[in-house]
Design a protein around this nucleic acid. Sequence first.
RNA 1: GCCCGGGUGGUGGAAUAGGUAGACACAAGGGACUUAAAAUCCCUCGCUCGCAAGGGCGUACCGGUUCGAGUCCGGUCCCGGGCACCA
Length: 905
Amino acid sequence: MDANYRPELIEAEAQKQWETDQAFRATENDGRPKYYCLSMFPYPSGKLHMGHVRNYTIGDVLARYHRMKDYNVMQPMGWDAFGLPAENAAMANKVAPAAWTYANIDYMRQQLKSLGLAIDWSRELATCKPDYYRWEQWLFTQLFEKGLIYKKLATVNWDPVDHTVLANEQVIDGCGWRSGALVEKRDIPMYFFRITDYAEELLAELDHLPGWPERVKTMQRNWIGKSFGVEIHFPLSKPAGQDVLKVFTTRADTLFGATYVAVAAEHPLAQQAAANNPQLAAFINECKQGSVAEADLATMEKKGMDTGLVAYHPFTGEAVPIWVANYVLMGYGEGAVMAVPAHDERDFAFAQKYGLPVRAVIRPSGEEKGVRREAEKPDSPHASLLTPYTEYGVLFDSGDFSGRSSQDAIEKIALVLKGLGLGERRTTFRLRDWGISRQRYWGCPIPIVHCPSCGDVPVPADQLPVVLPEDVVIDIGSPLKKMPEWSNCTCPKCGGAAERETDTMDTFVESSWYYARYACPDNDQAMLDGRANHWLPVDQYIGGIEHAILHLLYARFFHKLMRDVGLFGAENIRSSAGGPLPNPPPGGEGANAALRAPKAIDEPFKNLLTQGMVVAETYYRDLPDGKKQWINPAEVEVERDAKGHIVAAKLKSDGLPVIIGGIEKMSKSKNNGVDPQALIDQYGADTARLFMMFAAPPEQSLEWSDAGVEGAHRFLKRLWKAVHEHVAMGTVAAYSGGELSSAQQGLRRQLHQTIQKVSDDIERRQQFNTAIAAVMELMNALARLEGDDAVTRGLRQEALEAVALMLAPMVPHICQALLAELKPGIAFNQAAWPGADTSALVQDEIELVLQVNGKLRGKLVVAAGAAKKAIEQTALASPEAQKHMEGKPAKKVVVVPGRLVNIVV
RNA sequence: GCCCGGGUGGUGGAAUAGGUAGACACAAGGGACUUAAAAUCCCUCGCUCGCAAGGGCGUACCGGUUCGAGUCCGGUCCCGGGCACCA
C-alpha cells in the first residue's frame, strides 16, 4: 500500500474498473426490489458548474447507499439539449446550435465520468435527437386528436426592431436585450395543453405525496390556486352593445361596496369605448408597452382611465363607472373585476389616486371589536378610511344582507343573484392552460401541417419524426421560417399543397417525460414499454428548488397524460405507434381518477429532494456605456474588517477597487461561477464530493468558499494514513467478541452508534453533512485509542472497515482502495452496508443535565434504568442544586428521562 | 406586488418530537518538529465581568406561550427562490 494518498491514481483505476465491469448497468430481470434514483438532467451549457456537482453527488450518494442495501438501483443520465442558449451561442460564435450542443455534451459527459458517478450510461439520451423527440411529437398528435391540445391567441413580448419574440429574461427594464427597443405586447396564435382539465387531480394528488417537501406542495397548491367565488353580472346600458359585464370575485360579500368596475385594456368594452375617444385609445396603446411577465405587471404603477361607460349594480341598480386599468389581466377570469376600495388594497390605492369613492360595508365581527382603527368604524365618514379592511367580518349598509357574516353573505348573495339570473357560484383556478408554441428554431418541431382546405392536420405516426434540420445558420429569428424547402409539404389528409408549422415546442415539454423514457431509451417502436412499468415511479428525484413549480407540475401533468393515453396500461407493451387508442375516460379528463389505474402510477416521483442553490459573491465594474462588467471571484482579492466581514474588494490584476454585488446563484451572466474542474484536477473527485456533501445540508443553499476544500482533502489524507499504518502492521480479523477495557468498550459503542446515526442520516434525514461529521468524530476517537495488542488491533480493523463502508457512498474511489487493503479480495461493488451491533450500544450509567429554574447548574450521573422518583431525590440532594435553590423549597421538579432534571423554586 | 423558504461565533454549519446553544470543520492565534519552509502533530478560540473559582449576556429585531424557546404563536426588518418564453 502506498504510504501517500494519490487520488489521481486510485480514481482513474476505480473508474476504469467500473467501466469494464459495467458495474452500474441496471437490468429489469433482477429479484431484488428496484430503486430508481434520478437527478434532474443538465442543460448542456458548456461545462459542469457547482450546482451540477452538488446535484449529482447527492443522487450518487443515495444510489450507492441503496446499492449497498441490496436494491436493484437504476441511475441514468441524459441531456436537456434544446433551448435558447444554443441559439445565443450560435449567434455569438457562428456555430450551428446542434454542433455547439453536441460538443458540449461530449465534454460534460467526460466531466461527469470523472466524478465517479454510479450511472448506467447505456441509458443516456439527448432530447435534441430525433429518436427522442419523435415520441414527443407522437404524443402531441395523440393529445391533439383527443382535444387536449387547442389553439388560441396568446400575448408575447415583441421586439419591434428585431421583429422577433423575446423570452421574459431577454426583456430588461421593458426593453429588448439586443435592440434596446421598447418591448410591445403582441397577440399571436399558439397551441395550448389543457392542463386546467387536470387541475383538480394535480391538486388532490398532492395530498398523496408524503415523500415530497411540504414547501413544494404548498407552492404547487398556491400556483394551482383553486378558489371558490361568485360570478357576478353587472347589467349594461344599451349603447354598450352587450347585456352584462361579467366579473369574478371571491369576496361577493363586499358587493355593496363596489364603487367602480375595472376592465383590461384588451377587453371588448374598452376597445369599443376607445373607438371615439382618442385619449382612451392612447391609454390602451400605452398599456401595450412593456413585458408580459407577471412580476413586471404586478410591480408597475397602477394606472387607469374612465371609459365613460357605466354598468348597473345588480342589487341597487346604481350606476357604477367602468374604468380601464392596467392591472386587470385579460387572461384571468373575465378580464374584468368589481372594485371595492374599502376592502381591497389594490382597489383602495387606485381609488385614492383617481378620486373614486370608497364605501365601507364590512366591519370586524364582535370579538375583534376595538382592535381596529377608528377609521374603520362603521359610522365614521368614508373619506377618513386610512387603510382598507380586507378580512372577513360582518356586513353593514348592504341591504337585506346587513348583519350577516362574510361567509354567510357570500352564500346568500350567490343564491339571490342566481335567482335574478345575474350570477352564480363558481370555482376557478389560478392555473392557466400551458402555451407551448415557441417562435424559435432549436426545439422540437410541432407536428402539425397547415392545409388550406383541411385546416390544422397532425402529422400521421408513420411520417414521424418531423426532423429539425441541424445544418443551419442562425441570425435573428428562426431559420425554419425562411426555409420553404423544409416547411412546404403535402397535406396528410387531402394530399394538397400545405405548410408545416414552423414553431417549436417549449423545452419544458422534453423535460416532462424524460424520466419515463430512461426505462426504455432504445425502443424505436413505442414511446414507452413494459420496462417503464417496472421502473416507475421514480423512487428518488433530486433537483434544484428553482424547479418547485413549473417543471415538477408539468412533469406530473405529463405523467397523467401518458397514463390516459394508455402508456402505463397492460396494453402498452404492444407498439403504440399508429395503434388505436383506448377510449377516453367518460365525463371529462380530470374528473374520474377512481376509474383509473392504481395509485402507484398516478404520480411520477415518489420522493423528492430539493437541493438548495450554490451561491457565490458577485463583483462588477460599471462600464461607460452603462452596462456592468462582471468579474469572477477568483480574480478578486477581498479586504475584511476585524469581524471578518468583507468591506472592500479589488481586482488582483490591477489592484483597483471593484464593486461588491452581493451573493447570488452561480451563473454565467453574473460571472460568479467556480469551475469544479479545477477542483477535481487539483484534489480529485472524492475531495470535491466530500466537500460538497459536508459544507451544508442538501436543502440549504450553499455559499461557495475555497477554504473548506482543503479541510476535506486533509481528512481523506488522514484516513488514508490511518489505514496505511494499521495495514502495515499485518492483517488482523475484525473484533468479534471478548473482554474489552472500558476505553475499548467506549470506542466500540461509539462505532456502532455512528453506524446507526450515519444510516439514519443518509436514509431518513438525507442530511449528509452530519453523517460525515459523525464519521470524523469516530476517526478522532480512533486516533486516541492506544495499544497494539490483538484486541485493540481487531477493534481498529472493525472500525476502519466500517468507516470505509460508511463513506463509500460519498467518496467511493478512496473507499474502494482502502477496502481492498483492509479486506483483500473483497468485491467493492457487492459490499453490503454495515449493521449496528445493538449489544455494543448498551450503557449502564447515563448523564443528565441538572437545571434550577431552567438554568444549567450541573450534571448528574444516574443508573440507566433509574426511576423518576429516585432521579428527583438524587437531583435535590446534589450540592449544585442545594447551592442554587438558596434554601427555598422546590415548587416543582421536572424530570425528562434520559435528558434532564429541572428544579423550579 | 404575490407565493415559498431562510437569518445561530471571524466563516460553513450542528442542536432529529420544546430539554446542555455552538457538534464537526474552516480561518485565526500560540506551541512542537525542522537549518528553514511546506507538510504533520498539540493547545486556545461566542461576547463580557473576574487573578481565579464562578457569574451575567447571547440564535436578525420586538412581543407572547411554557418549568424550560434557536425550535411554537403574533408582528417587524433583511436575504434568497419562483411568478407561466432562462433552464
